[in-house]
Nucleic acid binder design. Structure first.
Length: 499
RNA sequence: GCGCCUCUAGCUCAAUGGCAGAGCAACGGACUCUUAAUCCGCAGGUUCGGGGUUCAAGUCCCCGGAGGCGCACCA
């Protein structure tokens, strides 16, 4: 057993050392002492000298050890890649010009009993990268950058919303009734009340209840859970911003989205001219605004609208390859036609607005067309980033819409909503005109970090569980190696720790 | 769920059906200015698992597992 200290006094991080002594000339000694800490990422023993790259979260700095100067020099030379070390000494620049800490004293802070992969190529195996994300993060700078970008983006998002007078709130994650979206929930059981509860699929209804309660500008950033498939754009738990503003409509929500997203691009990337997956992507406002109907019409060349005869819409949808269900009305058919033919081809940001009322049970009916709702989706790079409405505020109409949903559910649509009488009662207390939006933070981070897969932007994405090896009576190990790590393998480590 | 592809040393990868290999890491040694240090040496394998064909299987066939990509799902 190696005994390591309980703490270490670090006086500077690697980036500070590199920055503060950048003026030091080759071969010069500063006379200044620092204590740094981090992992040994490269090691170049050289007889009675040794060089090592120490990396911490700020960057990297070279350690320079000398026999006769560095305490326990021989042990220092034996450090392995990945070992954590705290080291103290003078800041110098070597004769060959590398800024270094010339180590007088040092201490092992943790040994790396498992390796970190090829020191040049890192770790590329997807299984290792996401099952053992800690290895990926050390081995691959790009992975660190992406998660750091995510953190900065969420921080700036909060700051921007606070600055606009929005109040950040938290609403329940355990819901007695799943609501606020068209999706299948995860179910769990609450023992004290002997009742099933659902992990939230959306915070929408609770947030609007807070508006009823007098919070005129609220937002929540948090995790949602949907019991659906995994894909490059879908993880069962994902993070959204959801925001509500009293006295506002969906046009106001467009303005908020445009300003927020383009402003975040400037904050984080310094530009609104992005490259995503090799293609230029321009987030510079103003963004295009087009109705869903006109986009579908221009894409397909069909004289289409939610008022088209249902049979005609059904034929067009079938022609486009949609597997039509009998229960669908014209609104659902139009939406399917849009998604099949149009959505994926939208690249630069577009506000796609005026959705069929039929598929928007929480959105207010359009002020000019009773078949439509005041709803938009903001689409960029072929994906939905935002979904927003002028909120439905009328309790009687909300109840009717819920009942339509419940009927659809009885007809076999398992994702359809359930009547939420608590919510209807809340609306009876009066919800003022309100605009609301939901924005997928994971997808926004993907856009900004130029990553193609949602798991790149999630610290620990959902993976199929590792297969349990040797689940027989004696529990002997299978051939899973590092992937199917048994408790015994974990305990001993892949590499013998003798040193 | 469907289709295609992949799985070899700790990592990254080789191996016309014919003795399972390299680089890096690890381990032992040399080296007082290295930068993926270099040099010498040593060790490392249930080729994902099981079955089959064959004189001979990492390679071909079947079953299973894990993963990737695409589709479907995700209004």
């Amino acid at each position: 057993m190696t005994t390591v200290p309980y703490r270490f006094d670090q006086t500077a991080d690697a980036a500070e050392v590199v920055a503060r002594w950048s003026g030091l000339a080759a071969g010069e000694e500063s006379g200044d002492q620092v204590s740094v800490a981090g992992r040994i990422m490269l090691s170049r023993p050289q007889g009675r000298l040794a060089f090592a790259e120490l990396r911490d979260s700020s960057g990297a700095v070279q350690l320079f050890a000398l026999d006769g100067v560095t305490r326990d020099f021989d042990a220092f030379k034996r450090l392995r890649l990945g070992d954590w070390v705290g080291a103290s000494g003078e800041v110098v620049r070597t004769r060959r010009g590398e800024l270094s800490v010339k180590i007088a004293d040092w201490v092992l802070l943790a040994e790396a009993r498992r390796g970190f992969g090829d020191k040049w190529r890192g770790v590329t195996d997807v299984e290792t990268r996401f099952r053992q994300r800690e290895v990926d993060l050390w081995a691959n700078a790009e992975s660190r950058r992406t998660l750091l970008l995510r953190s900065q983006l969420v921080r700036r998002m909060r700051e921007r919303l606070w600055d606009k007078g929005f109040v950040e709130v938290e609403t329940p994650i355990l819901h007695p009734i799943p609501g606020g979206a068209h999706a299948r929930p995860f179910v769990t059981h609450f023992r004290a009340l002997d009742m099933d509860v659902f992990l939230r699929i959306a915070p929408e209804l609770y947030l609007k209840r807070l508006v009823v309660g007098g919070f005129e500008k609220v937002f929540e950033i948090g995790r949602l859970f949907r019991n659906e498939g995994l894909s490059p754009r879908h993880n069962p738990e994902f993070t959204t911003l959801e925001l509500y503003q009293a006295y506002a409509d969906y046009h106001d929500m467009m303005a908020i989205v445009e300003e927020l997203v383009s402003g975040l691009a400037l904050d984080i990337l310094g530009t609104t001219s992005l490259t995503y997956q090799g293609r230029p992507l321009d987030l510079t406002p103003p963004w295009r605004r087009a109705t869903l109907t006109e986009l579908v019409a221009s894409e397909t060349g069909l004289d289409v609208s939610v008022h088209s005869p249902r049979d005609t819409l059904e034929k067009w949808a079938r022609d486009a390859g949609v597997e039509v269900e009998r229960s669908w009305g014209p609104g659902k058919l139009l939406l399917e036609l849009y998604e099949k033919t149009t959505e994926g081809g939208l690249w630069d940001p577009v506000f796609v607005y005026d959705y069929p009322k039929e598929v928007s049970p929480l959105a207010r009916v359009h002020r000019d067309d009773p078949m439509l709702a005041e709803r938009f989706e903001q689409v960029v790079a072929g994906r939905e980033l935002v979904n927003a409405f002028s909120e439905l505020v009328d309790p009687d109409e909300q109840l009717v819409r819920f009942e339509e949903q419940a009927a659809a559910r009885d007809a076999g649509d398992e994702d359809a909503m359930v009547v939420d009488t608590d919510y209807v009662r809340a609306l009876q207390h009066g919800l003022p005109p309100t605009g609301g939006l939901g924005l997928g933070i994971d997808r926004l981070v993907m856009l900004f970090s130029d990553t193609a897969h949602i798991r790149e932007v999630i610290s620990f994405p959902m993976m199929r569980p590792e297969r349990v090896e040797g689940a027989t009576a004696e529990g002997e190990e299978g051939a899973g190696g590092d992937q199917g790590a048994t408790p015994e393998e974990v305990a001993t480590g892949a590499v013998d720790g003798a040193r």
